[in-house]
């Protein structure tokens, strides 16, 4: 597959996944089972982010050290958020 074609397929997938997130909400799943729907929506966001980073930002063609660098930042942000939120539970 040429790169242009690959980028187009990815774009369509991203478009569809964004739509699915809204469908989950519009279909009332958040009212039925909030946390199940919540995590489904967030996982879809994570999948989209990985696809954009991996292919549009070319991360999958970069050395792993670059991915590690970004994951370090992400780890810091998640650690801060989770630990801080847990501390007041």
């Amino acid at each position: 597959m040429s790169r242009a074609k690959l980028y187009t397929v990815i774009y369509v997938v991203l478009f569809v996944l964004a739509t699915v997130q809204v469908v989950v909400e519009q279909a009332g799943y958040l009212e039925e089972s909030y946390w199940m729907a919540f995590w489904a929506i967030m996982v879809l966001s994570a999948v989209k982010a990985v696809v954009v980073a991996g292919w549009y930002q070319h991360l999958r063609w970069e050395p792993r050290s670059v991915t590690t660098l970004m994951l370090l930042g992400l780890l810091g942000a998640v650690a801060l958020t989770v630990a801080a939120s847990y501390s007041i539970l």
């Binding site: 964004a18 909400e25 729907a37 929506i41 967030m42 966001s45 989209k48 954009v52 980073a53």
Partner: peptide, 14 residues
């Protein structure tokens, strides 16, 4: 773009 992919569900959906 990636940042928005998280802002969108957090501030508009859930």
């Amino acid at each position: 773009d990636i940042v928005w992919l998280f802002l969108f569900p957090l501030f508009y959906i859930v």
